[in-house]
Write a protein that binds this DNA or RNA. Structure first.
Lengths: 220, 220
DNA sequence: GCTGTATCTCAACGATGCCAAGATATTTTT
DNA sequence: AAAAATATCTTGGCATCGTTGAGATACAGC
């Protein structure tokens, strides 16, 4: 949350909520003046409130005080909007992970912190995470920058492992393996396929710690 | 595929495609006679052809030669249909996994075969798998049998580990951990978040084998 | 100031999930 | 066997959604 407002160098820059609100206070103009950003901000709010189902272009238009067709001046279709949202999400995820993992004592510790951060992000941004990794973005080829941005969080995991592996261990194999565990646990928790009662906030960290420990013998 | 036609003791029994086709050949009656099953079969076909987006109640109605509102005599809403589809999917998944893992030489071998079976199922039934584990089924409380059936495939993994752990290793922890890795890898592959070029059909099995080997030190 | 472009409104299309009322077949009851 | 009750399907319609085309209005560059 604060992460996003603090970190401004996004490829899809979004005005802070405060500045945006001031923008909306301006006397009504035929031209909104900042509709694209307003839509993205409204989308973030709508996602938090009503989840992924509540996010419709019409609802977004109404939230920004504009007619249904207006968004189409800034996004070719809904997918393009979702791609923008997802890309911002990937940026925030990578930033939060990097932040949360600073000052790690060891490679293992860094891995644990990265994974916990990943899961935490998903938990506090469930709908956003679903957009980022769901099947709403069908044509990945349409949004080439998306895949690149999405790779940043994986790169954090991957580079945390690089050069710290026991001889003979394939780096790519191990990082994909760990990412799979991380991502699988996340989606299962988010989608409530795991009885969460056995994972309190604290015990989830412990779970991650023990999981990463399984990978430790592969490290130098 | 053949698994489903061979194994008939499903909680939601579905007539075989052949028998169903014969059913449809019958002279048209005002009462369809077997609409519920026909809808589920048509849904399976539609899912394979057009994916999850193409699966609409209206398309299903048209496919079974019936008007839009007819399905509502058998399913309260779309979610109830999806739940039935998902439940059948979970049954098939568990059956296939059990089949594919028979005759395993060791615990490790059995685990590998179970995981590979899981991924294979998802690959050859992408849309179905998405329904099973996606967010379409919002209210899990509405379909209490679903969670139970869904647990069967996990139970296979879990019981393959039971009693074969090194002393001091928590069974639940390890099975959830392995399942997370399995499920995460699956969704990432399915959703094309992993560059698949590095995973041929053969090399994916090898990847799974190596992943399971990471867990081996935890086994007795 | 004029022109061109970007932005937004208006009205509409087709598709979707869903529902109420009625018609028709099947089952149950008498 | 006749009648009543129920299950199943049709008809017509509602609201919502993404999307589009035509036109109005503001803005930018000349």
């Amino acid at each position: 949350m604060t992460v996003a407002t603090m970190a401004r160098p996004l490829t899809t820059p979004v005005a802070s909520d405060e500045a945006l609100k001031a923008d909306l206070q301006k006397k009504f103009k035929y031209h909104h003046g900042n509709l694209r950003d307003a839509l993205l901000v409204a989308a973030r709010d709508l996602l938090e409130q009503d989840g992924i189902e509540g996010l419709s272009l019409r609802a977004l238009a109404k939230a920004t005080g504009v007619t249904q067709a207006a968004p189409y001046s800034h996004f070719r279709d809904k997918d393009e909007l979702l791609a923008a949202i997802a890309e911002e999400g990937f940026q925030r995820l990578a930033i939060q992970m990097a932040e949360d993992a600073t000052g790690a004592a060891s490679t293992q510790d860094r891995l644990k912190k990265l994974v916990v951060s990943y899961i935490s992000f998903a938990q506090s941004n469930k709908a956003l995470f679903q957009i980022m990794f769901g099947r709403e973005l069908s044509d990945l080829k349409r949004f080439p920058t998306l895949a690149m941005t999405a790779g940043k969080s994986y790169a954090l995991l991957s580079s945390a492992l690089a050069g710290r592996l026991k001889e003979g261990v394939d780096a790519r194999f191990l990082s994909v393996s760990l990412w799979s565990l991380c991502h699988g646990l996340t989606t299962l928790v988010i989608e409530q396929k795991l009885s969460i009662d056995s994972f309190g906030t604290a015990s989830l960290e412990e779970f991650v710690a023990r999981s990463v420990d399984i990978f430790s013998p592969q490290l130098a």
